[in-house]
Design a protein around this nucleic acid. Structure first.
Lengths: 171, 171
DNA sequence: AACAATTGATTGACATCTAAAATACTCGGA
DNA sequence: TCCGAGTATTTTAGATGTCAATCAATTGTT
């Protein structure tokens, strides 16, 4: 990347690349949180809605028959306890309902209420507009490349089985 | 992008591009949080340290003379109240100290203690290793391109003055 | 059928975070 | 000098998030 691909000894290259990794990670982190924060603030300011609740409802909107608590925690990549709390709040507000699952009495199906769906759809339209605007700074080609690199990165991270997961399996 | 596009042609194209932006954002979000979560878990598992505290100490490590609370909240992109809480915890653990600012009695300078610096340095070495490994999936060229795109994206987002900022000025 | 292991969901304790109000101090001008 | 605007920090209330423990229901294996 920076200059001397020819003649630079391996050690210098490795060292330089290392710092690059850290810088790249900080940049990725900062950029994502910048956008996230902006979305969060607008959701709060214009609709009195929070990002977690919006994400929650977005999952449900695609699935008329509803989702189990466990499916929600998988899709949202959060813990079950968190889903319980979010569901409590949204149910209290009349935006979702818990219904017993026909086939498994341990499970619950969470669905959007008619009101919940109406609210979500209204917010979603604006939300998409914000995101589109924020990503307008990238050309189609840049956006496509970014998408590819993110997939590559994600796959590489997922392939390396995390230490914690290994530990969880009793030997 | 919005409502009244009449041509089916334009509408289709806009629609497709719109979903691209949304998908790209979700991918960016998921990827960042995947890495973040992994770092978080390892910090907790191996050192009993949290990511916010690590970030906090990382800022201080670069600045021997310490930073003001307000500088910390700027650099960490979090609110002042949050910095107060983090400082309380780290001070209680003996990793940082609050010292009065010579020139402004309203302000405080937060510094790493000797112990704090020692702890941070030890953790930082491992932390950098994790990040390097996770970004090894990208070639130098891909990494460089990713970095560029993130800068472009960030600048474009920052250029557009957020609605909230405008609103803060009394009309 | 009996029973151990698993799975779905909830709970409680704790750590981040934000937004908004309160407190303490600084600084520039009338 | 005094006063009003602005700045630095803290406080409070509330939302998110994790982890570990718990309870209830299901499943696989005898």
């Amino acid at each position: 990347m920076s200059a001397s691909l020819h003649g630079a000894d391996a050690e210098t290259r490795a060292d330089s690349s290392d710092h690059h990794a850290l810088r790249l990670w900080l940049r990725l982190y900062a950029c994502t949180h910048l956008i996230e924060k902006r979305v969060r603030r607008r959701l709060q300011g214009k609709f009195g809605m929070t990002l977690p609740r919006f994400d929650f409802m977005a999952q449900l909107d695609r699935v008329p028959q509803g989702l189990r608590m466990s499916e929600l925690s998988d899709r949202l990549m959060v813990t079950g306890g968190n889903v319980t709390g979010l569901t409590d709040t949204l149910e209290r507000e009349g935006l979702v309902v818990r219904e017993p699952d026909e086939t498994d009495r341990r499970a619950l199906r969470v669905k959007l209420t008619r009101e919940g769906r109406k609210v979500f759809r209204a917010v979603a339209v604006e939300h998409e507009g914000w995101v589109i605007d924020m990503f307008k700074g990238l050309s189609d080609e840049e956006a496509a490349a970014l998408g590819e690199q993110l997939i590559t990165l994600k796959n590489h991270v997922l392939e390396n089985v995390p230490v914690e997961a290994v530990r969880e399996h009793k030997s």
